[in-house]
Design a protein around this nucleic acid. Sequence first.
DNA 1: TTGTATGCGTTATCAA
DNA 2: TTGATAACGCATACAA
Lengths: 349, 349
Amino acid sequence: MSTRRATISDVAREAGVSPSTASVVFSGKTPTSEATRARVLAAADALGYTGPDPRAASLRRGRSGIVGVVFDTHLGTAFLDPVTTHMMDGLADGVSRLGAALLLLRDDGETVSEPSLHTAPIDAAVLIGCSPRMRDSLEIVRGRGIPVVVVEGDAGEGVPQVLLDNAEAQRAAAQHVADLGHRDVVIVTLPIDTSRRRGWVTADEPVRVDVTADRLAGAREVFPRAPVLAAATSSIDEGAIAGRTIFGDPSRRPTAVIAQSDLLAAGVIRAAEEAGLRVPHDVSVTGFDGVVVDGLAPHVLTTLVQPATAKGRAAGEAVAAMLEDDEPSGLDLTCTFRVGTTTAPPPTT
Amino acid sequence: MSTRRATISDVAREAGVSPSTASVVFSGKTPTSEATRARVLAAADALGYTGPDPRAASLRRGRSGIVGVVFDTHLGTAFLDPVTTHMMDGLADGVSRLGAALLLLRDDGETVSEPSLHTAPIDAAVLIGCSPRMRDSLEIVRGRGIPVVVVEGDAGEGVPQVLLDNAEAQRAAAQHVADLGHRDVVIVTLPIDTSRRRGWVTADEPVRVDVTADRLAGAREVFPRAPVLAAATSSIDEGAIAGRTIFGDPSRRPTAVIAQSDLLAAGVIRAAEEAGLRVPHDVSVTGFDGVVVDGLAPHVLTTLVQPATAKGRAAGEAVAAMLEDDEPSGLDLTCTFRVGTTTAPPPTT
DNA sequence: TTGTATGCGTTATCAA
DNA sequence: TTGATAACGCATACAA
């Protein structure tokens, strides 16, 4: 039992070949004779050598095989959203042709823990989200000369982005609601800024989160005067809170609610039912995302199905392309409008 | 614009100091005079040097600052379970004193993508889950001489584990149900093996997943003859499917259902209500996990609150300890029984 | 407080 | 098909 781990040189010596030959046996980059190959492998086995040290290899190669995924929230929170988990799914897929693994990174601007964005051994980065803070993260990464892709954020100059047609999609859904005859509509939005304040939003209030702003703009094209209620986060319980606010006063109940996410919509539906309203008979509800909301059955949400997995995959592929010096193709993805069982004409009073 | 990125030597030369001095300025390991420090920083700025190359640093140090988290399922699937997300949360916390980031690794035995378990530049690994396949992953990692912690899996000899008192906790909950007077009970389990087959389980059928087996054993201590129904996964919809099976035949309805997860329990409750049964008046339901089930309100599940975040944190801390050559303290965590509003005495017929 | 010297473990290049 | 050589970029022990 030697005290230190065997290196490829040890293996080479044991096998009676040069280190470079031993290296080649492991990398397979150059043909080797079956005999030497066997000898090297045997030597490795004897010495308990399990393969090249990835740290040394990545120094030499200039590549670590790791792609950083940067969030601006607590990781637990991020993964509570099915859209995020599906996106991670696609991302894992998209980078798989690189054979890269994903490194979870959180940049909240505060924590000075390492490895941070500044020091992580990543070949590329994917920034998730759209908070203003992402701009800083972006600068850090670009400063390091690391290729980066932004998913649904305002990246600016020359950064490949994966975007959704949020405004247009939401407009289409709102139009569907209008076409059904609804005039009395409330819009429930995702958080409007990083403070995550909950409550009614006045018309002139700035909306700092891109996704929220875009979807809101789309809905307002159809319903310019609809009251807007911001949720603190995207969850069923938040949607229920919003719903109780909306349906609390029977004299001012809308006939339809446009929610900016499926989770919010599910909560709104729950609140409506609590208030004795039937969906869609008494009130119509639309969502956004097209995720499977566990527990929503038997309702099928009228919603905009966003290609969450594809979004991740596109980001992954963009990253892969950049690392292979291909064109860093950004991508505009489109949502599909799906009519479910939660929208109908307004009740005939 | 030079064609290659500046190194610390370039910075040192520019600043008129030695490389080691420049290095020290960045690492802060040795005091430097304010003057040289400023000069080095200025030089770095001028050259666009953003800090030491992590690949080189980690080779030199023998540390990458990365902890691998190994799953045996599709990552998207894993993150769909709140227990997992909470655990990741705690894990991120637990390793934070190391200042380590988390690398997502999937080992399904098939994919040959790199970096895999074999080649990822990780300082330590955390194995999540308990499938038989984990044994292989364990061998790979140990072969590399990398410290590893197993969370709720059967690790065997000398591997620190983070365990839950699954059997005892489930026994306690079952006893509570028995104490309420229930005799007619059905147990709904998590998947019993990797095939994830759904359906009734015969008494002699082997249960290959540790968690499932342990919880089942605990319940059977109290209800040795209770019928057992396996779910294909842990979700509300799966629970509803199980619930429909259970309540489908009015002549054979149990008065209580012991579910092995909160998500399953929520689904069972939903199915019960669909069948016109009131919870807990007509049927009692218990869960396991103590997670917040989005959308379950107003019910409060009678369940076993497992310290999911603590579980992750414990794993993280165990890893941290091992890397600091402390005792690799494994940990046995205990669940807390919580009486909610979903259990009551059986209906008096 | 700063500088010198050395090697961490690999792999790419090129010549044999 | 194999081997010699030379980096990759840095951090540390030690001397000054």
